[in-house]
Nucleic acid binder design. Structure first.
Lengths: 163, 163
DNA sequence: ACGTACATGTAAGGAGTTACATGATTTG
DNA sequence: CAAATCATGTAACTCCTTACATGTACGT
């Protein structure tokens, strides 16, 4: 139930519509994964039903703006307070498990593709970091992503330049 | 559908029963996440139905051993060949997105917990790495995990020792 | 014979994916 | 007024999660 918490957290930052959230969930611009449009609206309805967020306005084109409630903020903090689920499911890593057996050319190809992706992400994040000014509540997450992609790039380069 | 590929890959390494696979999916011992018992057997039935694996023996206690077929190996290689899904969903990183806003003490507490976990994982993987001898088909994946946890630990330490 | 490890199954519900569908406003 | 963008919805399906249930073999 991690999309649920993501939505709750994003609404806590400032009141938002489902459509606003969909932009936040665009990978290219942030650390978040792309959430299915569908799910975002379902989760909003669910959170509203549970009283964790509430609809504060209906704008043009039927846009429903939701804001977090007191109960919602409590629940968000409770989630932040509890130990994280450290389960990692990452396809490039899973492929790594099996690439050791097979064709070395395939293994190098995969590592090369991975390296290209990781470096592009790194460049993207570094550009954002450089362009930013003023206070930045997302700093931790972006730093974490920077560490992550830097490590992945180093790994991929290691595989490439290996017998 | 990544559990599916994980099972296919593991069966490709050597013929296995569902019970064998469950041990492979134990997090502590590898890079893989813990798969629900339930799902493993469902996926096995599904793969068998599609002809990607086949039942080669029935042992004691009704243990069904499955081996990969030609079609299965083709599909596995096809999957390894195609570009990975780089979508990352990692709870500690998601929390990082929201911890910037709130209570600094909570932020540091979270980073401290994270650091402890990451370092324990690192120590575990390093011990495995040190104890290993002979050829190692899982080397890439373990190296990747080492890079990953090292980066995460460095990030968490950074948060801790920060204004 | 008793407990433990082996080995699989079923059921119910929640979450995610993909595709399609609909209507309202703004912009040119 | 046509096209693009805004804004949400429905449906069908697959996958994942949690809990419970069942039976077989092995060691002592």
């Amino acid at each position: 139930m991690t999309l649920r918490n993501a939505v709750l957290g994003l609404v806590a930052e400032s009141p938002k519509t489902g459509f606003d959230l969909l932009k936040d969930f665009d990978v290219a611009r942030s650390v978040l994964w792309p959430a299915p449009q569908n799910e975002v609206y379902r989760v909003l309805r669910q959170l509203a039903e549970e009283g964790l967020i509430e609809q504060t306005a209906v704008g043009a084109r039927g846009a429903r703006t939701y804001a977090i409630t007191g109960a919602g903020r409590e629940q968000l903090i409770a989630w932040l307070r509890e130990p994280s689920d450290y389960t990692l499911r990452y396809e490039p890593m899973l492929k790594g498990v099996f690439l050791g057996d097979g064709d070395p050319a395939l293994r190098r190809q995969r590592a090369a593709d991975d390296a290209a992706f990781f470096k592009a992400q790194l460049a993207h994040l570094e550009r954002i970091e450089a362009e930013r000014t003023g206070p930045d509540p997302r700093r931790d997450a972006r730093r974490m992503a920077l560490h992550f992609y830097r490590a992945m790039a180093a790994w991929a380069d290691g595989v490439s330049s290996d017998a």
